[in-house]
Structure formats: structure tokens, C-alpha cells
């Protein structure tokens, strides 16, 4: 089901929406993120460095790529201009081939004079159900 933005009128505690934010992660997307962000840590883009020197099975995505992809759900549910805070903890690595599904669940709705402040838990899991990032987002939805 397509994600629909919550409004001050429609949002309720417990409401939840989810979205596939990365499908079958390609090495190309990791390289695109390296270039876009300027983070050229070779753990993310250099297979020989990541496997033979650092001892990982293969390269893995920047945590900030997972946070950024998850952020597209956050702005889908809250809108771009209403977001006041977004924070996550990086819980496990994301590898080429992974598919990430992000979920936003409303935990608090506080109605003020000119806006409704909404807090949501944010959690993104891979295709095995392992949590890769989790955190919270807050937004002030205008009246």
C-alpha cells in the first residue's frame, strides 16, 4: 500500500506505515552514495580492502545510506517541511543484495495551539528480519 502523509487531523497514536526503501541493494548504489556523500571509506567500495584486509565477507553500505533511505519514509509520512528531528542507531551492517523495509509507528501525539507534535518510532529491517537501523522522528504538523 502506498505511503500517505499523516496530517494533524488524521494522525493517531499507534498508526503505522511501512515501505521498502532499498530493494536488492546493488554495489552501484553504494558507490553512488559514496560519491554523493563524499564518504570514501574503502570498507564500502573496495572489495579487496573490505575482504582481504579488514576481514569482512564483502563491502557493506554506509550506515548513512540506510539512514538516508529510511529518511525517505520519514518525509513521506511527515512531509519535508514539518520534520523537526530524526535520529537513529546503526544496529547491523547492510550488504549487497539486501532488501530494507522501513516502518514508522506513531508513539505520541501532542496537540498544541498552532501545531500537533508527533513522535514516531522508526525501524528498518533487512530481508531476514534483522534490525539494521532504529530510532525516532518528530514533526510539527501545522493546523
Amino acid at each position: 500500500m502506498a505511503v500517505k502523509a499523516w496530517t494533524a487531523e488524521t494522525v493517531v497514536k499507534g498508526a503505522s506505515q511501512k515501505k521498502v526503501v532499498i530493494e536488492n541493494l546493488t554495489r552501484t548504489q553504494i558507490v553512488m552514495y559514496a560519491g554523493a556523500s563524499g564518504d570514501f571509506n574503502p570498507l564500502h567500495t573496495d572489495e579487496i580492502f573490505a575482504s582481504k584486509i579488514a576481514g569482512y565477507d564483502t563491502v557493506f553500505a554506509h550506515g548513512m545510506l540506510s539512514m538516508g533511505a529510511t529518511g525517505t519514509l520519514v518525509t513521506d509520512v511527515f512531509g519535508n517541511g514539518t520534520l523537526t528531528g530524526y535520529g537513529v542507531r546503526f544496529r547491523s551492517q547492510v550488504f549487497p543484495g539486501d532488501t530494507l523495509t522501513a516502518t514508522a509507528t506513531v508513539t505520541d501525539v501532542a496537540r498544541h495551539h498552532d501545531s500537533t507534535v508527533v513522535t514516531a518510532d522508526i525501524e528498518t529491517v533487512n530481508q531476514k528480519g534483522e534490525v539494521v537501523v532504529s530510532g525516532t522522528a518528530t514533526a510539527a504538523l501545522p493546523h
Binding site: 552514495y33 560519491g35 554523493a36 545510506l65 538516508g68 529518511g71 525517505t72 518525509t75 519535508n80
Partner: peptide, 13 residues
């Protein structure tokens, strides 16, 4: 740069 970053994280808006 915004377009490049949006493409990299899959931000379609």
C-alpha cells in the same frame, strides 16, 4: 548535488 544525493538514497519526491 541535491539530485545526486536524492538518487543515491532513493528519495523520489
Amino acid at each position: 548535488k541535491i539530485r545526486e544525493f536524492a538518487d543515491a538514497v532513493g528519495a523520489a519526491h
